[in-house]
């Protein structure tokens, strides 16, 4: 098991899949000659050439549509959208074509494409470069949505997504590309459904995904060390479909639940998890479940305001203590 950075894990998944299958291609803005804004496709242009590592013009909707069209005929495109904020422009092709074509053709045609895109608040990128769009994608029938919280998942999710016959949206995070983590030396395929228990505990379930898993883990450390509270951290790497059974299992152990998300609370992952808790865990809960979400504001440029808009481990600790009365 070797340690590698998140971007290296993404790159390795691309490289292995492209090596295996000549119909796997990758495309996006600056991914070829430049090697990707976050280095995730470094060296692939030299290895596979411009036909398969495609530097696209800046036209997110149409190059995404082009990748989807290619996937109709057996090509397996890994489409990178440089920032999730730009994926608003590609929503027509993702939502109206990729997600619906299997259904509206009565199963005749599928769009087995992968769309990867980093979102989240990074460092003072301002309102139009700090979007968190997972809530938009997870509401689209016919689209799988996954979101890795570490290099192992990033690697394994891309590997499975490329081979899966469904369109898969992979929600990455701009500040996580230099994070280090262990990735198996042998080939590894991460499931596209389910959840993982990132830390076991008996007192409260902390549900997180992507960057908020790390806040939950930090909070769990503090809760254990300073307050004698053993929190279980559940990593919801699959956002669509969400792992109802996994949520149920954890709450059956802890009888307390909190969901942490980087996005605004309305119509989001937290709201959906709360609904599942209500529908499936109501009689298991010993206290009302809690959401820890971002403020409902366009993300400000100012560093202090930006920090105030996004939750952190401290907010989770405070919410858990209040919930448990400890």
């Amino acid at each position: 098991m070797a340690e590698m950075m998140f971007w290296e894990a993404v790159r390795r998944a691309h490289d292995e899949e492209m090596e295996r299958d000549p119909l796997v291609i990758c495309m996006g803005e600056d991914i070829g000659v430049v090697g990707g804004t976050y280095k995730a496709t470094t060296g692939l242009y030299d290895k596979y050439g411009p036909e398969r590592v495609i530097d696209t013009p800046i036209c997110e909707n149409s190059y995404t549509g082009l990748g989807i069209g290619a996937s109709f005929l057996g090509v397996r495109p890994i489409i990178e959208i440089m920032s999730v904020n730009f994926s608003w422009l590609a929503l027509d092709q993702i939502a109206n074509t990729a997600a619906k074509v299997r259904y509206m053709s009565g199963g005749q045609l599928t769009a087995p494409c992968v769309v990867r895109s980093p979102g989240g608040t990074a460092h003072q990128l301002g309102a139009q470069h700090s979007g968190r769009m997972e809530k938009v994608f997870m509401g689209i029938a016919g689209l799988r949505v996954v979101t890795p919280s570490n290099p192992r998942q990033a690697y394994g999710l891309i590997k499975s997504a490329v081979r899966c016959d469904d369109p898969v949206f992979i929600n990455e995070h701009e500040i996580m590309y230099n994070m280090k983590g262990e990735v198996p030396d042998e080939e590894y395929f991460h499931p596209l459904e389910g959840s993982e228990v990132a830390r076991e505990g008996r007192d409260v379930s902390l549900f997180g995904y992507n960057v908020s898993v790390h806040w939950c883990l930090q909070a769990a450390e503090i809760l254990a060390r300073e307050h004698g509270i053993e929190a279980e951290v559940v990593d919801l790497y699959a956002l669509s479909p969400l792992d109802r059974a996994g949520i149920r299992r954890s709450v059956a152990r802890t009888h307390h639940a909190l969901i942490a998300e980087e996005a605004e609370p309305a119509v989001g992952v937290g709201a959906e998890v709360m609904a599942i808790l209500d529908e499936e865990c109501f009689y298991e809960l010993d206290a009302p479940p809690v959401r820890v979400s971002a403020a409902t504001v366009p993300i400000p440029y100012n560093h202090t305001l930006e920090k105030a808009a996004i939750p952190n481990a401290g907010d989770i600790v405070a919410a858990v203590r209040k919930m448990l009365g400890r």
Binding site: L23, E51, S62, Y63, L66, G69, A70, V75, Q93
Partner: peptide, 14 residues
């Protein structure tokens, strides 16, 4: 428009 271009890309590759 882009779907047609994408299918043409696939034909070109194959």
């Amino acid at each position: 428009f882009p779907l047609a271009a994408g299918m043409a890309k696939a034909v070109q590759m194959k």
